[in-house]
Simulated scan of single mutants.
Amino acid sequence: MELVNTTTLSTPSRVDQEDCGLHCRIVLIALYSVVLLGGTVGTIMMSRMMFKRKSQSVIATIILNIIVLRSVLDSLPLRLSYYVSDVWAFGFFTCRVVSGVIYGHMYFIFVFYVAIVIFRLLVYFKKLQVQRLQKFHAVVLSVVIWLVGSLVFLPLFFSQYGTNPSFSQEPRCFEFYKDLNRSELIVINYSVIAIMMTTVTALSLVEMVVIFQMVKALWPDMWAHQEYRAQIKSFFFLLVIFVCFVPHHAFRIYFIQNYSKKDHSQLVLYNEICVALTTVCCLDMLCFIGGLIH
């Protein structure tokens, strides 16, 4: 699984130039601050809305899972303190946990987004009947995703990343890119990239065909139809994946091939920005609350 987080910031005592410098830290502080504020507000408002509606639908249950995953926001203050002070003061184990949280959040969010899109497509193609589905089915689906995801993600991350003793010798954090000299991790990275790219591309093509067909059939009153609005929401989730997750995975290919060069400070900069960009998906609730997606 693609779990390599790479932050290497400068201190005067460091001989190498593997850091992304003050400019990198300013960008990351600004980006994580916006995500922390916007994500917290959006999650609270969406939680209140879901509580008032008390919906029992499959989609509502999946949205509740996404709200739970917003606990990633709790780890952002630790990241911000690191980028502000340029020193990690919370221990190496905490560093690994905070690094794992951001990647675990991304991949679980990806799975739940894909589950929403596939569910709505199956309903559209009449492969599923909503009337026959109960909250029990959504709960079972959620449990399966959490159980399988945890059994795959947790052992992989804690057994493969950050195991080199040299990582704990400095007050640094998020320098796990050094593990990429192991061929098995490179294979895992490429495999995850291929799975994500293939899945989101295929679903996007299907979704665009469905939306185009619905526009032709319902024009000009398509917004009055709930099914059309549901497909637009599905496409929005795919758009979030493209904007927030795909850049990181696309750049990861180039990063893996070039990180071992002597001067790769710019690679670290761009990779860290791509990692931070994955958390921007936490603003999705604000898009719904703010009416950008009706």
Score class of each variant (00 low, 15 high):
Q226V: 08
L36F: 12
A276L: 06
S204R: 01
L277D: 10
N5A: 08
A202D: 00
F158S: 08
Y103E: 04
V243D: 03
F255Q: 05
A217K: 15
Q160L: 07
V35L: 10
A276N: 04
D16G: 05
V200D: 06
L156N: 02
F110K: 00
C173I: 01
R96L: 15
E18M: 09
Y270H: 10
H248E: 14
S168H: 00
V114M: 07
L133A: 10
Y103M: 07
I293G: 09
T94D: 06
S234E: 06
S81V: 09
F110I: 07
S75A: 15
C20F: 14
V130K: 10
L277G: 08
W146M: 13
L64N: 15
I186A: 05
S85K: 14
S150R: 10
L218Y: 06
V130I: 12
I188P: 00
Q266M: 12
I273Q: 05
I211W: 08
F255V: 02
A194P: 02
T7L: 12
K126F: 02
T163N: 12
H248M: 08
Y254C: 03
I188R: 03
L64D: 06
V98P: 08
F112Y: 09
I293H: 00
T279A: 09
S99I: 03
I102V: 12
G42C: 02
S159I: 11
H23F: 13
I102W: 00
S150F: 15
S168C: 03
S150D: 12
Q231R: 05
L22I: 14
V97E: 03
T163I: 13
S191W: 07
N164R: 12
G149Q: 04
I253A: 14
R25D: 09
M222G: 02
V123G: 00
S204G: 04
L239T: 09
Y107K: 01
V148L: 11
P247A: 07
E175C: 09
H23E: 13
V58G: 00
I195G: 00
R252I: 10
L292I: 15
L22V: 10
K233L: 02
V144W: 11
V143K: 08
H137D: 15
K216S: 09
D16K: 02
I195N: 03
S168P: 00
A194S: 09
M222E: 15
V58T: 10
I232K: 10
L239A: 11
H294R: 08
R132Q: 13
L286G: 05
I256A: 01
N189A: 11
L80T: 07
R229T: 11
S85I: 15
T61P: 04
W223L: 06
Q129F: 11
S57W: 04
S234C: 13
L69F: 09
Y82R: 04
V27P: 04
H264G: 13
L267K: 00
R229A: 08
M45H: 03
Y270G: 01
R14I: 03
Q160R: 06
L64I: 09
I59F: 11
R14G: 02
S168D: 15
R48M: 07
L283N: 06
M208Q: 02
M208N: 07
H137R: 08
I193W: 06
A202E: 01
I145M: 14
L64P: 07
N164G: 02
D86V: 10
T7P: 00
P247V: 08
I253T: 08
T199P: 02
V41R: 01
K127M: 14
T198S: 08
Q257F: 13
G38D: 06
L121G: 02
S183V: 13
I186G: 11
C244A: 14
Q17P: 02
S33T: 14
